[in-house]
């Protein structure tokens, strides 16, 4: 105790709380699975993914770990607005999936502690320090659930079902061969990889576009046609994936990640001197001393990647 301040007790309490939150993180996914009937195998395995057609490209956006619900205002909304404007009729942008809940419930609705998350969400929008980080923490733990070999297969199944439902509601035709691009920001990148396995099983050619994503060597990579990982040179968070997940280390030669790398299905591109969530970040709208506007650079990088891969209509027409 330093001058009456119970530092040790606070540290022990914080560690215990962290461990408790970590231990309860998989509960929602476990509960979801317990509510499902035993899966019925209705068809034999089919060749995954026909050749992509020249039809519409469907882009599904999964938000970063700072989001409290699919409805709440997000820092990346201006990026989505720019993408939608620039894409026009060349691709369909599907949003509204909350990637950190197998139930597709945002934190601020339909939960016992919704009121608490709403308070934290308001605090986050008013840029209060520390406490709103609980939202990030909750979502980061769900990213760990997704990346865990034990929970990932059913967490990702639930997420894939949500994404598939949104795609079909938006007009995607199963079996059409229209390409599906999963665009994930931050932790959303990992959720994209996990869901890819099941989406590709539906015959959709699946691509993943990660913006500063924290990615594991998810089995979903085995069915991803290409993963583009865009990052800022000052973004330390995106590097965590390569450090925390041993199956991404060069020593795991046969992991999904290293296999995809060898097969040339992973492209990493540095797009500027951006941080993950500080300033300037990928989403900063203020012009920089060199005259560039980070959010515009990010938008261009995303569109340029899609165009370079022939996934935009205008590119095909040329």
């Amino acid at each position: 105790m330093i001058a009456g301040f119970p530092l040790a007790e606070i540290v022990v309490g914080a560690v215990a709380l962290l461990l408790l939150l970590l231990m309860t993180a998989p509960f929602e996914a476990l509960w979801w699975w317990s509510q499902q009937e035993e899966p019925v195998q209705r068809r034999p395995p089919r060749e995954v993914g026909p050749a992509p057609t020249e039809g519409t490209t469907w882009i599904v956006y999964l938000a970063g770990v700072g989001t409290a619900s699919s409805e709440s205002s997000r820092p990346e909304q201006p990026l989505l607005d720019r993408l939608r404007d620039r894409l026009g009729d060349e691709a369909v942008l599907v949003t509204g999936v909350f990637p950190y809940s197998v139930l597709d419930h945002g934190l601020t609705t339909d939960r016992d502690l919704s009121w608490l998350w709403r308070v934290l969400d308001r605090m986050q929008r008013r840029k209060w320090p520390v406490l709103p980080l609980l939202i990030n923490l909750y979502n980061v733990f769900q990213v760990l659930v997704s990346a865990d070999r034990r929970y990932g297969p059913f967490f990702s199944l639930a997420m894939a079902r949500t994404i598939w439902g949104r795609l079909r509601a938006a007009g995607y035709q199963p079996g059409s061969g229209d390409p599906v691009v999963l665009l994930g920001w931050s932790g959303g990148g990992q959720i994209c990889l996990g869901a890819s396995w099941y989406l590709a099983d539906q015959g959709a050619p699946v691509y993943v576009l990660s913006l500063g994503g924290v990615l594991s060597s998810d089995p979903g990579l085995d069915r991803v046609r290409h993963l583009w990982h865009l990052y800022g040179s000052r973004d330390r968070v995106h590097r965590l994936g390569g450090l925390l997940f041993p199956s991404r280390w060069p020593t795991s030669r046969d992991s999904s990640w290293n296999r995809a790398r060898r097969e040339g299905r992973i492209t990493t591109t540095e797009i500027g001197p951006y941080t993950h969530s500080g300033s300037p970040s990928y989403l900063t709208r203020r012009p920089q001393p060199d005259g560039s506007v980070p959010i515009e650079v990010t938008t261009e990088a995303l569109l340029g990647t899609l165009a370079g891969a022939g996934l935009l209509v205008r590119d095909r027409a040329r």
Binding site: Q35, V40, Y198, D201
Partner: peptide, 15 residues
């Protein structure tokens, strides 16, 4: 679970 095909087919998994 990853080896079961068609889990997103209608009715393959349900509550």
């Amino acid at each position: 679970l990853l080896q079961v095909p068609g889990l997103l087919d209608d009715g393959a998994v349900g509550e």
